[in-house]
Simulated scan of single mutants.
Amino acid sequence: MSVDEAGTQQVDGGADEPGWDVDPDDESGVAVVAAVGRQIKAWREAAGMRAGEFGAAIGYSEDLVYKVEGGRRIPRPEFLDRADEVLGAGGKIAAMKRDVAQVRYPKKVRDLAGVEAKAVEIAAYVAHGLHGLLQTPGHARALFEARQPAYSQDEVERMVSARMARQSIFERLPAPALSFVLEESALRRPIGGTMEWRRQLERLLEIGQLRNVSLQVMPTYREAHPGMDGDIDVLKFKDGTAVGRSHGAFSGRSVTDGRQLRILELRYGTIRAEALTPRETLALIAQVLGET
């Protein structure tokens, strides 16, 4: 994913924006959106307004109003704000923005964002490409659009928004300790085209200079290392617990057992030791940027 907005708006004469459909397989999300829709309809009917009349008053089409009220479309924050104002709800409708804030995003992504939001330390090695927390919107969009079977544009926008939402972690206070190791090849693949590639490199330079972030690159001239089997992630929490996962260990499942976590930490520690230092990494990224 900020895990924040959701909705439906009449744009450019009534075009239906992608990325705001309700996921029918997300039971909790369906329930939230349906409940919000019922509340809006109840307020509208209590005000004696027809759907078309209400839509015209808030700048939405009648069709979109019916979709929102019927729980088939997630209302944008602007929809809820305007509805609250027009219907004289005194903040009761606008307050539902928090209820629908996260349901725009797939449940798996919401769960991941929730775990990341609780972590005080995150360590991540990515064998191919860039970690989702490091990606620009254009980079993420290019990756999703390249998937096969092809995603619909609605699905692409939904997942890009969800991935960007997770990056609110960089704004958290107190700031968590974040450590990333990526392969040098990830810096040199022009995903999204030259201009997007440059934006991505600039974003890495920006993130790499944050005081709570350690960003390292594994140079291509290094020989075999413990991350060759796949990604490694270890997240630690305030209460002393932790969770880890690696594609190359424990059948790729998440683990919380102390012994298994130590194995992942050992592998990650070795990878960090063999990678370029954060200072050397920023110099390399700047060099690649200058060559683009």
Rank of each mutant, 00 (worst) to 15 (best):
R141H: 02
A165D: 08
A34Y: 06
A127I: 02
S185T: 10
S254L: 04
Q287G: 05
E85C: 09
E183Y: 00
G244C: 05
A15V: 14
R172Y: 09
G91Q: 06
I263D: 15
S214P: 01
L64E: 14
E45D: 13
Q260A: 13
E145N: 10
P137L: 00
I58P: 06
A57D: 04
D26V: 10
G244R: 04
V213S: 05
V126Y: 01
G252S: 05
Q200G: 05
A113Y: 00
Y151K: 09
G290W: 02
L80K: 06
A186C: 03
G29W: 05
L178Y: 03
E145I: 00
R163T: 08
F250Q: 03
D257R: 11
I285E: 00
Q209R: 15
G114W: 05
E280M: 05
R245T: 12
A34V: 08
A89D: 08
Q287Y: 07
L276K: 07
L210K: 15
G91P: 11
A47E: 09
M159F: 12
G59T: 04
G59P: 09
E206S: 08
E27Y: 12
V160H: 05
D239G: 09
S61K: 10
L264W: 10
Q216M: 07
M195T: 13
P149V: 12
P176Q: 06
R267G: 14
E27T: 15
L112H: 09
E183I: 04
R38L: 13
Q167W: 03
G129I: 02
T8L: 14
A150R: 15
G252P: 05
R44L: 11
A162Q: 04
R211Y: 12
R38D: 14
A89V: 07
G90E: 02
S214C: 12
S168M: 07
A175I: 00
A47R: 15
E206C: 01
T281G: 01
L264K: 03
G70Q: 09
E5Q: 13
R203P: 00
R267Q: 14
Y125L: 01
R141N: 01
Q153S: 11
A31W: 07
L282N: 06
V33W: 08
A150F: 08
V86S: 12
L289A: 03
G269F: 11
G138R: 00
L130S: 05
A56S: 14
L112F: 13
V243M: 14
A224E: 06
L205D: 06
K92F: 07
D84K: 06
R172N: 10
H139Y: 15
A177T: 12
S152L: 12
R158E: 11
L80F: 10
V68D: 06
E206R: 01
Q10N: 08
R44H: 11
D154E: 12
L133P: 00
E196R: 06
A34W: 02
G91F: 14
G244V: 03
G227A: 08
R163H: 10
R245D: 08
E69I: 10
Q148I: 11
A123E: 09
V160F: 12
V288M: 01
R267F: 13
G290F: 00
M228V: 14
Q102Y: 01
P18N: 13
A119Q: 09
A89H: 02
L264Q: 10
L284C: 04
H225I: 06
A113F: 02
R44Y: 13
A146N: 08
W20A: 15
